[in-house]
Amino acid sequence: MPTLQLAALTFANRPSQLPLLSRLADILAASPAVTHLMVRGSLAHGTADRLSDVDFVVGVQDAELPAFVEALDDLMSIEAGALLPGWRDTIVADLGGVGMVFLVPDDGHLHQIDLYLAPAARIPRLRATVATALLLDREPAPTTTEEAAVAERFAAEFFAQPRTCAELLIEHLVLAVLLHKRIKRGQRFIAYSEWHRLHTATKDLIKTALAPTSRFWGWYQLREEIAITPIGRTCLGDLETAISGPAVPLAADVDAAVERTLALVERACPEALSGLENAIAAYRAYLELM
């Protein structure tokens, strides 16, 4: 097991998330595919509060990146205790890799864990442009041009994959946690942005469930495509309720949106709940504690 360079980070921050950060770092560093492990965001800058997420940049051997990402849900669930499968992070900046967000319970709280997985060949450039605290620096194996191309192609295709109803449900649940943090911190502009993103996820969920072969982009032709069945009209009613709310939500608005989404999923695509029943019950309990 490699020695992780946690001393400087501990001295600078002494954050409440440090035991969780250390445990996750050990889990990730145990894989021989991982070449670099860095912390970024407030934990790296010494400005973390009790609501701060744990934000890692993980360098992975270029040739191993697709397999590592494929195994990440199992790794985070079995080893780290993640409550739900990871959400493909559509908010994170493009740094040449892929971003995933997990919700991990620890010490009675639900923590947001951001993992940005980048090909090892891109790490020097990334370290020059992104402020990070280095925890692990392992010399990567030589990377061929073909291996670098595989990693680059995988990263480009990762977010192009159509999202399933289950993935869109998880997006709602993750965004709700983010919104609760923004509201508690008074970050109204960011809360506005993430609230709109949640409404868009509701629209995408309805279209994925009821009009999966839609030829129309975004918000166009929703009534024409969706409101042709009783279920469709009810789902559009849910969407009307969502977009008719406040521009910047209160905590109660976020909680109501989660319950509305769960009811929508049960009505329009109940198979998306398969295997997630216990996780969602636990999620609700943690949300009440936020």
Rank of each mutant, 00 (worst) to 15 (best):
A211E: 00
E157N: 12
T200R: 14
N13S: 15
E152A: 02
F68R: 05
L18H: 15
A71F: 06
F158T: 08
I170Y: 04
P32T: 10
L179K: 14
V39Y: 06
T208I: 11
A148E: 11
A281S: 13
L239H: 13
T229L: 10
K181P: 14
A211P: 06
D137H: 03
L6Y: 12
F56E: 00
V57A: 07
E167W: 07
Q112D: 04
E277S: 15
I113G: 03
P85Q: 06
R215S: 12
S77F: 13
L117R: 00
Q17I: 07
W217N: 15
D26H: 14
V69E: 11
F154H: 01
C165P: 02
R182Y: 14
P230T: 13
Q17M: 15
Q17D: 07
L18P: 12
T35L: 08
S274M: 05
R122E: 00
A149Q: 09
L136I: 05
F189S: 13
V258I: 03
L262S: 09
L43V: 03
Q221R: 14
G218L: 03
I170A: 00
S214Y: 01
Y220F: 12
P162S: 01
A93F: 08
P246W: 05
L250A: 15
E259Q: 10
L134F: 07
G218V: 07
